[in-house]
């Protein structure tokens, strides 16, 4: 549960920095809807590498894995 909250909090902070105060559910797409752009994805990558020790070089990188809180959670759980 803490992991989910941490991911949610981070995405919320990222959106606020972009001037997007809108809410989102755990299943809401953030990249496909354009709320997060490629440059934001980089920050999510660094966050996941640092917080959850995910190595994208090993597992392969797919932007769809970072599209929502749910998809990031499945990534974290499958590490």
């Amino acid at each position: 549960m803490n992991d989910r909250l941490a991911i949610r909090g981070y995405l919320q902070k990222l959106l606020r920095q972009k001037g997007d105060p809108g809410g989102f559910t755990d299943s809401d797409s953030l990249i496909v809807t354009g709320r997060l752009e490629s440059v934001d994805t980089l920050e999510v990558v660094v966050f996941l590498e640092e917080q959850f020790q995910i190595d994208f070089a090993d597992r392969g990188f797919d932007q769809n894995d970072l599209d929502s809180v749910d998809s990031i959670m499945s990534l974290v759980e499958s590490r």
Binding site: T41, V45, F61, Q63
Partner: peptide, 21 residues
């Protein structure tokens, strides 16, 4: 831009110089 990001940027970003932001 998305094409270049998908097939060049991200593959390089997740593999090289990871300790030097």
């Amino acid at each position: 831009k998305e094409l270049l990001a998908e097939f060049f940027f991200f593959p390089a970003y997740v593999r090289y110089f990871k300790k030097y932001r």
